[in-house]
Structure formats: structure tokens, C-alpha cells
Simulated assay, not measured.
Amino acid sequence: MPILESTYKPPFQFKNGFVATVYSGLVRKIKGLEQQRERINTRDNDFLDLDWSYAESKSDAVIILLHGLEGHAQRPYVTGAAKLFNRNGVDAVCVNFRGCSGEDNRFYHSYHSGATNDLDDVVQHCIQKGYSKIYIKGISLGGNITLKYLGEHREIPSEIKAAIAISVPVHLASASKELHKFKNKAFAIRFKNHLVNKLKIKINQFPDNITVTEINSIKTLRDFDEVYTSKAHGFKDALDYYEQSSSLQFLKNITVPTLLINALNDSFLSAECFPVKEAKQNDNLHLEMPKFGGHVGFIQKNNIYYNEKRALEFVKATVQD
């Protein structure tokens, strides 16, 4: 598929990727969205908390929204999309990954960048509820899960009509190196501290799985993936986790119309996270690379972000086709 030319033009003050990223993560607010929580069991007897919002009239379409690392279903980049789709006749289910809904999950393992079974459980749940048109939108880590899910060797339900992935580190190893650079130090420390605090809770329930010494050895996000993520989820080490979980290798297999938007000034992304070759070789993969936008910072007027507007446009075009 030819590379899409982006029309995104941010307000002048948000051309800086750092400013756009910080504003969107810490300042933006979404008002007027009512959510109803539902808890479902996963195939391994853990649970997921789903936060639903609905269109004004009964809809046969739903969008599944997946947050990023240490996010949750009330983050504005999730609720903003939910509100826009609700206003346009589509129900929305905002997924809280394991341990991200305010309550720790049942097991030592939780969620990670390549854990696609939970997404499949949500898809199957939506099908059981009677939805005939399912869209998926994933942000950052949630975007990697979306792309990997669509390109894995599994049967994709026919109800899935389109997918959108935003600010996605499709090549985890090189993206991890970017995140550890000085330019991203504040973000990396914030992520690491959130993750370590959760791990400290798990040590009380699973004292045989990890020690205080091991937790104290975690100084970086890479350390966290070495000490916890890889070991808890069956990988050899952090590098093995990155290699197996990166969605880049699965893009060639995607058969569902999919839009990937990665900003060129996203400081979290490496050169490998702009899969031009893969997009050109797959008619179902539409790659858009705006000059601006930072990491999930596609700010526009009226508090409707460019990536949210593009997601709706893409879905509408897909349905018409």
C-alpha cells in the first residue's frame, strides 16, 4: 500500500514533540463520557475490567480501545476516541490490561507488549454480545498488541472490519534503546517507578517468585523487563521478549484494513518503527508518518485529536468499501 501523505498541522506551540507529548498525557481532559464497568474472566481464569460507553441508539458496531504502558481505560487518549465514536453511532469498550484497573490481577504474570490472548478474549466477548462490526484501536503498547494480534497465525474473526494503531514501537529492542536515552529520561523513570511499585505489591502474594534484592536491582525499564517481564511470561530474557513480541515481523501477514500512524518527531520511536517497506508490500497496511505529533500528541482544535479523527475516517471508509 502506498505510504499515506499526512495532513496533520498542529498549533504552533505543539510542533515540539516533547511539549505535545506532555500536554496530551498530563493536561488534556475529556468530559461528558459515561462509562459502565464490566468484569470478564480470561481463558486462564484471570480477569479483565472493561469500561463501556454507548452510542445514543442501539449499535451493531463497537470499537475496542487499548491503552499504552501503565495506562488505563480513563486515559484521555482512550476516552477521547470513545467519546468521538459514540457520537458517530459506535459503541466503545475501553480495556484495562491486567492490573491496570485499580486492582491487582490474580497471577504473578500480568500483561506485556506481545500478550494477544487477552485481546482475543475481548473480541470473542464482543461477538457473543452480538456485535457484527468490530474495530480495534491500540495506542503505543496497545498498538503493538493490535498489530501482532492481526498478523499472528490465528484465525481472525470476520467481524473485525478495521484496525488503527497509534504511536507504536513496532520494533521493541530499538525502541527500548530510544526510551533509555537522555531525551526520554523523565518518561523512562516515570514508567519504571509505576511498574516497580506494582511489583512490590506482588512480592507479598508471590514471595517464591521474586526477592526484594531482585526488585532493588531494577534501575531501568530494561532491568524491569529482564527481572520481571521476561521471567514472568516465559521468555529467556529481555531481548528474547523484545524479539518475540515485536509486531514488525507480523505486519506482512495482516489481512484486515489497518492504519498505522507514527509521528516522525516521536522521541520514543527508533528508525525501525517506521515500516515503510512492510507497508508498501501489504495492501492492507496503511502507514501515515506525520512530521509532528510526538507520542500520542496529535493535538487539534475542539479537543478532538487528529489521530482520533483519522481513525473515524478510516473506519467509515472501510465500511463503505
Rank of each mutant, 00 (worst) to 15 (best):
Y54H: 13
V93F: 04
G17S: 08
A20G: 08
A55D: 03
S110A: 14
V62G: 06
R43I: 10
A82R: 04
G114W: 09
G89P: 04
G68M: 00
G99H: 01
I64R: 09
K31P: 00
N88W: 05
V78G: 03
V93R: 04
V78A: 09
E56C: 09
V27N: 06
L48T: 01
G114Q: 10
Q36R: 14
K15A: 02
S53Q: 01
G32T: 11
I30A: 03
R39K: 13
N41T: 13
N86G: 10
T21R: 01
I64M: 10
G25V: 00
W52H: 12
F18V: 15
N86M: 11
Y108P: 11
Y77C: 10
A55T: 08
Q74R: 15
A55V: 07
V27A: 12
R106F: 07
S101A: 14
C94R: 14
N16W: 08
Q74T: 12
W52V: 06
D49P: 12
A92H: 07
N96I: 04
V27T: 10
H72C: 15
C94P: 02
L69F: 06
G114V: 07
D51G: 04
E38N: 11
S110G: 12
F97I: 04
L66D: 00
R98K: 15
Y111G: 04
W52L: 06
N96L: 06
F97P: 07
Q36N: 14
L48N: 01
S53H: 04
Y54F: 15
K29C: 00
R43C: 03
I64G: 06
R39A: 09
K29S: 08
W52R: 03
E103D: 08
S24A: 15
L65M: 05
A61D: 08
Q36V: 15
V90P: 06
V27D: 03
E103S: 13
L33W: 04
G17W: 02
I30T: 11
Y77A: 06
E38G: 05
S110V: 11
R39P: 00
G17Q: 05
V19G: 02
F97N: 10
L26C: 03
R39V: 15
N16M: 10
E103L: 14
V90S: 02
A82G: 12
R43H: 13
V78P: 07
D46N: 12
N41Y: 13
G80S: 11
Q74S: 14
G32A: 09
D51W: 00
V19H: 09
Q36Y: 14
G102E: 00
H72G: 13
Y77T: 09
V19I: 15
K15D: 02
A92I: 04
V27L: 07
D91T: 10
E103P: 00
L84P: 04
G25C: 04
D46P: 06
I64T: 10
F47L: 06
L33H: 07
L33G: 06
I30Y: 01
G25K: 03
G80M: 09
G68E: 01
F47C: 08
E56K: 15
L50A: 02
S113I: 05
F107H: 14
I63N: 09
V90L: 03
F18R: 13
L50W: 01
